[in-house]
Design a protein around this nucleic acid. Structure first.
Length: 286
DNA sequence: CATATGTCCTGAGAGC
DNA sequence: TGCTCTCAGGACATAT
């Protein structure tokens, strides 16, 4: 489930290809239903062939490969997509291949087992309008003022609202739970009932949790799918406080077991004892 | 407009 | 052992 930390780790992993030339773009043989790629692969091949990679960047949960002529190849891994320089986990779910003139890394791959991921090629002005303009600020840099501006009148539960990429870009189901746990806020709290100190704690906890997760190269869950660009597992799964820990002891307070509820058809994990609607700041993490 | 729900997809794991 | 069923959740389409 690549969220911001996993996608940022993918981005960092492929930075060695900056400066090299794209010689061919293709869709490797794959027995599965093709993923969404636009424009058609032969058009992408024509437009990218001979171009140099000027930058590899990230916006929310998307990786962007920027060329020297201001085209931007946007890869959205969604649930099971991986951007790889290493060999893929299987040969059967390869979705895209960029052949490169790099001395070590001969190609960049997009592998996606479930096939929910997408690939798009835009010119910069199109990207700005179609992608960037529709996303909130990136979660690593979002300010309290901006988050409040976007959400403070919303009647949605804060956990559900944090998943809205138009409000803030990069947070998914796992990190929303971890962020609200660190902030000591009940995930069911309506946005329009949150106090200013609570908004401040949400923003600081967001940076803290995502920053730590990036430092650990993301979370590889029990299905083992997520890998960085060189096929190594992440390590942040060993630091989860609530996600997928239903019934286990809360590591922060003595009263609680982690509970699982469902919000907007997704699991939410939290500690009912120290994430409270009253908003009193819980004791510091031991 | 804001918010809620349905949809796509594969493979792991549960239950019988 | 082998079958069927449920579930995981990213973003978007459609409904209310």
């Amino acid at each position: 489930m690549p969220e911001l930390p996993e996608v940022e780790t993918m981005r960092r992993g492929v930075t060695p290809i900056i400066g090299c030339k794209i010689t061919r773009t293709s869709r490797p043989p794959c027995s599965r239903r093709p993923i969404s790629i636009r424009p058609r692969i032969d058009v992408i091949d024509k437009r990218l062939s001979g171009r140099r990679i000027a930058e590899v960047s990230r916006r929310g949960k998307r990786v962007m490969i920027e060329t020297d002529d201001d085209q931007i190849l946007v890869i959205e891994p969604r649930m099971t997509g991986l951007v790889l320089l290493a060999d893929p986990p299987t040969t059967d779910h390869l979705r895209l291949q960029l052949d490169l003139d790099h001395s070590i890394h001969k190609r960049l791959l997009f592998w996606d087992r479930r096939g929910l991921g997408t690939v798009r090629l835009y010119r910069r002005d199109e990207f700005t309008k179609i992608v960037d303009g529709k996303l909130g600020q990136d979660a690593m840099v979002v300010t309290e003022e901006e988050l409040r501006r976007r959400l403070s009148t919303s009647r949605r539960a804060i956990k559900v609202a944090l998943l809205d990429q138009k409000a803030v870009a990069g947070i998914g189901n796992l990190y929303a739970a971890e962020i609200l746990y660190l902030a000591g806020i009940d995930p069911r709290t309506r946005c329009d009932r949150l106090s200013r100190p609570q908004w401040r704690r949400i923003v600081s906890s967001t940076r803290e949790v995502l920053g730590m997760a990036i430092a650990h190269e993301g979370s590889t869950l029990s299905d083992g799918t997520y890998r960085n660009a060189l096929n190594n597992e992440g390590g942040f799964q060993n630091h989860h406080r609530v996600y997928d820990r239903e019934g286990l002891d809360c590591v922060r307070c003595d009263n609680g077991f982690i509970k699982r509820i469902v919000q907007a058809q997704r699991s939410t994990f939290f500690c009912p004892a120290c994430q409270c609607k009253s908003g009193l700041h819980p004791s510091v993490v031991p």
